[in-house]
């Protein structure tokens, strides 16, 4: 996990934001695309944006507002990391947004000044693409968080409402 976090910080630094962590979802949208180890995925689902937003609203707090304690051990080392995640959903008739923030409580030192609820990890935007279709954009780390991306995609296309196992990320 520490490696992935280090790479993510390096990615943001490479994007020219060294010393300035995005403080809002909008800053994250502007700074993250094009950065090393940051991925922007666009896709379309055959559901109305209102339904996509409703799924985000129903599932995101329950699945993502968690504090995770992970332990990893290797010969000669034992590490405990405690991380809190906070999801924010803004959903309406014409758009839906899901923000996921990550704050390390133990085991990782914050290098830059972070927002109160932690660094922005993902920003997901959904906008209408016709009467019964929605264009979805996921901005987030390009590796280490596959399970979260799979959950977001399933929530968006309506195929599943399962929660990602947040102990598997990083």
């Amino acid at each position: 996990m520490r490696t992935a976090i280090g790479l993510f910080i390096a990615a943001l630094a490479a994007a020219g934001c060294a010393g300035k962590m995005p403080q809002t979802a909008d800053e994250f949208r502007q700074m993250a695309p094009g950065a090393f180890m940051v991925q922007v995925q666009d896709f379309e689902v055959k559901r109305a944006v209102r339904d996509v937003g409703e799924t985000f609203r129903r599932r995101a707090p329950e699945c993502l507002n968690v504090t995770i304690r992970t332990t990893s051990s290797a010969p000669g080392s034992y590490q405990v990391i405690e991380t809190a995640y906070k999801a924010t959903v803004i959903a309406g008739a014409s758009k839906a947004e899901l923000h996921l923030q990550q704050k390390h409580l133990k085991g990782v030192i914050a290098v830059y000044e972070e927002p109160v609820d932690g660094r922005y990890l993902f920003v997901v935007d959904a906008v209408p693409a016709g009467a019964r279709a929605t264009k979805v954009q996921i901005i987030g780390p390009s590796r280490g968080y596959d399970v979260v991306v799979r959950a977001f995609k399933a929530w968006a296309d309506g195929s599943s409402t399962a929660c990602p196992d947040m102990t598997k990320i990083g």
Binding site: T70, T71, K168
Partner: peptide, 17 residues
Amino acid sequence: EFSTSSFWAGRSGSITQ
């Protein structure tokens, strides 16, 4: 409570609903 562990990765975790 769901528990997983990976001997090779040397890590374990559990998550609850």
